Computed example of a mutant assay.
Amino acid sequence: MRFTPEELEAARGRLVPDVVASGLHVLFCGINPGLMTAVTGHHFARPGNRFWPVLHAAGFTPRRFRPDEQEELPAHGLGITNVVARATARADELTAAEYREGGRLLAEKVARLRPRWLAVAGVTAYRVAFDDKHAVIGPQERMLGDTRIWALPNPSGLNAHWTLPTMAEEYGRLRAAAFAEGEPA
């Protein structure tokens, strides 16, 4: 799908509904919706975003889903939310205060939904949202109630130092941990 610059700009600030359910194995958490996501209403919708290919390559899904198939994720024990709800063209348009408030709201959401793992796709966003300056990619010491946290590489095409295979390997480590106590959906 192609959208005009005007259509994309009109999506600035829009909210995109979460794809969630109680008791998920993994609740994936993006930084915030991009304008393409806001226009389509589908998470990680920008064509260069590698979330959907990585999800499949890591073994979370039986095939590569398209963004418009996001509603199938809960049947596989997966969901999607964001640290900050409002759509922007770039994550650098967000303020530290928005990240911190997003972290607070995310903690409330996790307490309500109780996923096994919260997977934040962007270690820098995780660091700011949860005031953890030294966090690195991988499982975190911090927990939200009974929910473990994993910081993942951001799947944006702009994150070029993480290739599809290296991202799939890291996401695969999370998948192994998330489904260690049960079969993948």
Rank of each mutant, 00 (worst) to 15 (best):
L78F: 01
N82M: 03
L55I: 09
L55A: 15
F51D: 08
E93C: 11
V54S: 09
L94C: 02
A91Q: 11
N82A: 13
D68C: 06
P53E: 13
A91V: 10
A89T: 06
E93H: 12
I80P: 01
N82G: 00
L55D: 04
L73N: 06
I80C: 11
T88M: 08
P67S: 11
E72R: 12
P53C: 07
A58K: 13
P74R: 02
V54I: 15
T81I: 04
V54D: 07
A57N: 09
P74L: 07
A87T: 11
E72P: 00
T61P: 05
P53T: 09
L94G: 02
T88Y: 04
L78C: 08
R63Q: 12
G79Y: 06
G77K: 04
I80T: 04
G79F: 04
V54N: 05
T61K: 11
P62N: 07
E72I: 00
A89K: 09
T88W: 00
V54Y: 01
F60S: 06
L55H: 10
A57E: 13
R50M: 10
G77T: 01
F65T: 00
P53V: 04
A91T: 14
Q70K: 05
A75F: 13
A87G: 11
A57Y: 00
R66G: 08
H76F: 14
H56Y: 15
G77Y: 02
G59R: 15
T88G: 07
E69T: 00
L73K: 00
R90E: 15
P74W: 02
A85W: 10
L73Q: 04
F65N: 00
T81K: 03
F51K: 01
F51R: 10
L73R: 11
V54K: 04
P53M: 06
N82I: 09
I80Y: 03
A57M: 08
A58C: 11
R86D: 10
E69W: 06
F51W: 08
H76Y: 14
L78G: 02
E71N: 09
L55G: 00
T81E: 01
G79V: 05
A75L: 14
A89Q: 15
L94M: 12
W52Q: 09
V84N: 03
G77N: 05
E69P: 02
F65Q: 06
H56V: 01
R90Y: 14
N82V: 05
E93P: 03
F65I: 03
R86A: 12
P53R: 09
W52T: 05
A75K: 15
P62E: 10
L94N: 02
I80N: 06
A85E: 15
Q70I: 02
A58M: 12
D92L: 10
F60C: 08
G77F: 02
D68S: 07
L94H: 03
D92M: 10
V83K: 01
H56R: 14
A85R: 13
F60W: 12
A57S: 13
R50E: 09
L94Q: 08
Q70D: 14
L78N: 03
E71R: 01
D92N: 15
R66S: 14
I80D: 03
T61L: 15
P53L: 07
A87Y: 04
P74C: 11
E93Y: 04
P62V: 11
N82D: 14
H76Q: 14
Q70C: 12
R90G: 07
R64C: 12
G79R: 06
R86V: 13
